[in-house]
Design a protein around this nucleic acid. Structure first.
Lengths: 159, 159
DNA sequence: GTCAGTGCAAAGGTTTTGCAATTTA
DNA sequence: TAAATTGCAAAACCTTTGCACTGAC
């Protein structure tokens, strides 16, 4: 169960229920694999690649294939329950969607790969202002800051 | 010839000269293909995929291969003369680097694919502030706003 | 003449897809 | 039982790379 507190009201969204509703509304059938994949993904609640998810799902049920993970994550993305990120132009990383957690942006260490999530309301407001200025109706945005984290334990790439 | 006006001083950077200097400093040889590719890329000065660049280069010199375009764009990226963008997780789009044009962010129409470039100093400042707050030394950032452009001529995707 | 650059095609990595078999409702 | 889902492997897609040949210095 995830709680969203947007400062005005509190909504409770259960991702598994949301997924089931979405499937029902779209003439889709549920399956053992989809439930397993969704469970491990929402339980971990962190940035996971398809292979991470596959590995975790197989610990619960060894009969899950990579293709099904790809298909299920696409489904969850369509629901708005998951979002794909491409920080490094390699494998996509999935994280829980805005409707479950708070929207946030990312700060990524170019040496150790550490990812910090943050929100800054001033930036959110400026983004809307800029979109409006150019006649756009904003639907989504992506902001990623890259730098060196300065952590003493930071291991440079290649170590 | 590209002019950079950063508000304090004005520098003139010729990309072809910069590329030649870079190659000389790195024990590389120039070639007919590299000059052709660089010429068409800097002349167009817009977002171009590798295939766009290949097509344009072949109109000048039919003996240019895709592999050489990839290799040359990588070289130009290392020089800072070009930057790769991945707006849609498909083919990369290249644009001229910050040292040639002003740094800018992007507003992308999700219906017609139109790309608007913009700069907002307030956002630039906030980004640095946020990175500092989390102990990061900012090296680079990426901000993309997605929405509907509201243009009457906007053709929805798939048309 | 030497060594870097090229073109080609093959290989690489990630994601999608066709299809027969299976599972769900 | 009909229709959607699965697993497998092949294909698709973008990009990189090995190698013999070409071309720049």
């Amino acid at each position: 169960m995830v709680v969203i507190d947007n400062g005005e009201s509190v909504a409770r969204v259960d991702p598994i229920t949301t997924m089931r509703n979405y499937m029902a509304q779209h003439g889709m059938k549920n399956s053992r694999q989809r439930e397993t994949i969704a469970e491990v993904f929402f339980e971990a609640a962190r940035h996971m690649s398809v292979d991470d998810i596959l590995e975790a799902a197989r610990q619960v049920d060894s009969r899950v294939s990579q293709a099904t993970v790809y298909r299920t994550m696409k489904l969850l993305t369509e629901c708005g329950l998951a979002e794909a990120r491409h920080f490094n132009d390699g494998q996509a990383l999935y994280e829980v969607g805005d409707i479950l957690g708070h929207h946030h942006d990312h700060l990524i260490c170019i040496d150790c790969g550490k990812i910090v999530e943050f929100v800054d309301e001033r930036i959110e407001e400026l983004q809307t202002e800029i979109a409006t200025k150019y006649g756009f109706e904003l639907t989504q945005h992506r902001m990623e800051l890259y730098g060196r984290c300065g952590d003493p334990q930071c291991r440079e790439r290649g170590n």
